[in-house]
Design a protein around this nucleic acid. Structure first.
Lengths: 397, 397
DNA sequence: TTGTAGGCGTTATCAG
DNA sequence: CTGATAACGCCTACAA
């Protein structure tokens, strides 16, 4: 046995150089030769072992990653036991667990998500499905999800879709089936599509929807209370002395638009004001509709002294319209938007607006998707901030 | 053989109802009983067959997807042959190929990406790695990539990173290793990080970088010619009579900033103008730096009559500063930005700006990533548009 | 509490 | 050109 002394020497060294894979590799060899631990009980001269070792050495040499087999052999237990450690199975001897965990740390072993995906018939991918024109929001959501899944085996895969495409549902079905998604997150406005949510569930993946109201049960929902937020904003305008407050709605059929309308009415009545149909104009969340609405609202004999627009883009349009009619903002008319997009802070005057805590919402949503147990104590509803900027001042009588 | 008549009847039916999996399933049965095609030559009464059939029937009944085994059995060839069909292997009998393809179509068989990922040690995932503050751009890129990979087995996984984090490279390495990415796309500004690109390559995935200049060879690059675009814009300002043209740079160390500076100088000299150091102020691509730069540029005795800002956000800041000093835009000073973000169209006056054809660039990038052969004929450089809006007018002497 | 055998759906090797 | 057999790395069922 000419190898033994060298192997023993290397083994000693190994305890210092944990991250050196070749050293670790030699450690096995040492163990097998000296019999300190018997990897395959009673099988030491078996060719199977040599073969396994050779395979491992080759792989290590090529800089390949260790597998569950390497961990099993090094710790002298079976694959299944390692698997139990990985999956935190409760029925496992504490000593065994710690031993295996030590080897895992030493090898810097990371389970192969692809193999797990195959065996479990489920990929560790979270899908973000959206048809959302607000880039800021979508990116905020992506960052929030990443905050949660960073350093986990999950990854975020995105899928922008076209709400108006007749094949949308079929496309999404194929996408989910093919990638075997673990869960999906739905952003407004398609988060309001119950058929879509049901489809995802039927395909065996959990769904969390983001929205402006209770679209689903707590475990599958993160929502901002738009109604409350708008109501508060309107009440604040009233406190500033505004009594004729205009409103630009969102498009019909959007839950967020509906919630904001309800909030507007609620805010008025909190302030003892009566809604005036003439001061409410329908928009479609786009800039141009904001211009049109602003023109209409400000053209009357008794124009509003403040206008609440259901999103920032339309608010920018209202501002545009006001200026086109020779009015000053905020001196002649105060304006409030919704969303706090990049536009809001960068137009003149800077726009007062309502801001969703998007990133926090997305973090929670990802938690509900990936660790429902942990997420049970997380909130489903989030408070929006009113971001006060220069576009609103007191009403001058 | 009491089953035969029933089986035969069903088999006939099958030719009409292709999408009915139970029917397809029965067709196998028919074939095996009648011997029209012999799935396992010479093994018909073999229990193995029955077992296989039962497994398949159970799976079909549960609505599970057909596998390569189903295709192989139905077409009477081996798995490997089916695999060859899937992977378009050249050495294959045309008749065999067509036969197998027919069965694939009939079964609506789709290869399982997870299994392929495991066997090939490579996932069909394209990673989008970025540290980009421009939400519009990032989303445009995502849509462009999706345009290309929709209806393929690829999926898009995103990874926003923090350029300033000391662990960024290590994080990215783990991400790529763990997800075994097929390829990655790098957006500016981190696309300029050569160490990162090298890391990705070392990890065995192809890289395509998006940028403002030749960062890499044609096969791994999509770029906009910022230098040319800015030069053209400046020359145009000169044509409009502007001779004192201010410039707000981007931050040092950014390739895009550098290219735009070079373009600015080139544009001036094309127009026979000399660069004036006093008319050039450094910014950092942020709104506030635009305000500061605008203030500085417009405070002098002979302020510029036009200002080129290296991005829209700073241009909005310049606009802000001009207004604060009682100047009108564009009457007193024309402004041009860069990027055509949402801000540009929604401020007052609407901002003239340079627009990258982002979506087209991303489409091409995805092609280079997923189908390099096809992409060979695709361009690497893209022309930017000058989007002319109200923020620029002729210079009034 | 732990181990064995077999499967997940695909591709690679190498022999025919 | 085609097929049997063995990977790929992990998990489940069942056994001990």
């Amino acid at each position: 046995m000419p190898n033994q002394p060298r192997a023993a020497a290397n083994a000693t060294q190994t305890f210092r150089i944990f991250s050196n894979r070749r050293a670790v590799c030699k450690r096995v060899f040492f163990r097998m030769v000296t019999g300190v631990i018997l990897p395959f009980t009673g099988r030491e001269g078996n060719p199977e072992n040599r073969s396994g070792r050779e395979v491992e050495e080759r792989r290590m040499a090529q800089g390949q990653k260790p597998t569950i087999n390497d961990v099993a052999r090094l710790s002298g237990v079976s694959k299944k036991t390692v698997s139990r450690v990985i999956n935190k199975s409760p029925l496992l001897n504490q000593a065994t667990r710690e031993m295996v965990e030590a080897v895992i740390a030493q090898l810097e072993y990371v389970p192969n998500p692809q193999a797990r995906a195959l065996a479990l018939r489920r990929n560790f991918l979270i899908g973000l499905i959206h048809d959302n024109p607000n880039a800021q929001m979508v990116l905020g959501v992506q960052e929030g999800i990443l905050d949660t899944i960073r350093n986990t085996e999950f990854a975020l895969v995105v899928r922008p879709v076209d709400r108006h495409s007749p094949t949308m549902l079929e496309d999404i079905r194929r996408f989910i089936e093919q990638q075997r998604l673990y869960g999906v997150m739905l952003l407004p406005p398609i988060s309001e599509n119950d058929a879509l949510a049901q489809l995802c569930r039927d395909l065996g993946c959990t769904v969390v929807r983001m929205g402006s109201a209770r679209l689903d049960d707590d475990a599958h929902l993160v929502a901002s209370n738009d109604q409350q937020a708008v109501s508060d904003a309107v009440a604040w305008l009233a406190e500033l002395g505004h009594t004729r407050i205009g409103f630009v709605t969102g498009p019909e059929g959007f839950r967020s638009a509906r919630e904001r309308e309800l909030g507007f009415t609620a805010g008025l009545s909190r302030a003892g004001l009566k809604p005036d149909p003439k001061l409410s104009v329908r928009g479609d969340y786009r800039f141009e509709s904001g211009i049109a609405a602003g023109k209409k609202l400000l053209a009357g004999k008794k124009p509003p002294t403040a206008i609440f627009s259901s999103n920032d883009e339309m608010a920018a349009g209202v501002l545009h319209a006001a200026r086109a009619q020779g009015l000053s903002v905020p001196e002649d008319v105060s304006i409030i938007g919704f969303d706090d997009t990049a536009i809001a802070a960068h137009i003149w005057p800077p726009l007062t607006t309502v801001r969703w805590p998007i990133r926090a919402m997305a973090r929670t949503a990802a938690l509900k998707l990936t660790r429902p147990e942990t997420a049970a104590s997380e909130p489903s509803f989030f408070l929006s901030d009113l971001v006060r900027r220069a576009s609103v001042i007191e009403c001058k009588p």
